[in-house]
């Protein structure tokens, strides 16, 4: 039986890289005593796969992994069992049983939504909402990508499905909006800050980095904001339920059929 696990990653844990997160979950699955399925062969490993790697420094409340289990009592029990063995900064948000024929998490990823807010100070852009709207209203958003082999010019516009200005709640201490969501301690001071939210292509062929879009926007708005000054948060990861030729129908990976 295949289950899909949705989790959040924030605070100190944003500095743990993708491969180390996989190791972390492998150990957590053992600690939680989940009846996980192992591969065959001389050094069997848990059958586990992650959706889209998250860059170091980025927080998320929309991370996914798939796990194959031999048995389980209920999705709620599994969620609780995992949360009992987590550390601060990783929280399992939901567990869902996948249909047997479902594609694995990584192959299913079509898009992701992100939020960018400043860790201190302000954007310094008078009408942020209008600037963002004007930025997105351009016919083309050209971006020059330098790889080891060559220089590519690409148009970001078709991979940006939505972008707008908004507001988000953060914990004042850490300026983390995922923590504001996950940490229930009332002793923590909360505040509301402006942010930019976007939904972009996250498929293996057309993945767009939110920081690239942000940099292009800053240039457009005539403001220089170093990437080190912002906190990037992945809000959700989506799959596309549309059939070939139909218009896109993005739904969170948790709801994959």
């Amino acid at each position: 039986m295949k289950v899909r696990i949705k989790f959040a990653k924030y605070g100190a844990m944003k500095f743990i890289g993708h491969l180390d997160m996989m190791r972390f979950f492998q150990k957590a699955v053992r600690r939680a005593d989940i009846d996980v399925k192992y591969s065959e062969g001389f050094s069997p490993h848990q059958i586990m796969s992650f959706a889209a790697p998250l860059g170091v420094g980025i927080e998320s409340c929309g991370e996914y992994m798939d796990l194959e289990v031999l048995s389980m009592s209920s999705v709620e029990d599994m969620k609780d069992a995992l949360n009992r063995v987590m550390v601060e900064g990783v929280e399992v948000l939901a567990v869902n049983v996948l249909p047997d024929q479902a594609k694995n998490a990584m192959a299913s990823v079509a898009a992701a939504s992100y939020q960018i807010h400043l860790k201190e100070g302000s954007f310094g852009i008078p009408d942020l909402a209008q600037s963002v709207a004007l930025f997105y209203a351009q016919n083309q958003i050209l971006y020059t990508k330098e790889t080891k082999k060559n220089i590519l010019e690409m148009d970001l516009k078709q991979g940006i499905y939505e972008i707008r200005a908004g507001e988000t709640q953060v914990l004042a201490d850490s300026m983390s909006s995922v923590a504001a969501m996950c940490v229930t301690d009332p002793g923590q001071n909360r505040m509301t800050v402006p942010c930019i939210q976007m939904t972009v292509d996250a498929s293996s062929s057309g993945n767009i980095k939110p920081t690239v879009v942000f940099e292009k926007f800053c240039t457009f708005a005539g403001r220089e904001i170093p990437v080190s000054a912002v906190q990037v948060t992945r809000l959700e990861t989506y799959t596309d339920l549309a059939k070939e030729g139909e218009p896109g129908q993005l739904v969170p990976l948790l709801l994959q059929k």
Binding site: A12, F15, I16, R31, V56, G57, V87, S228, Q231
Partner: peptide, 18 residues
Amino acid sequence: DEILMRVEKPARYIGNEV
């Protein structure tokens, strides 16, 4: 954050382990 993003293996310095 800025320093942690600049150094090799920031996980060496954050504690929080199981």
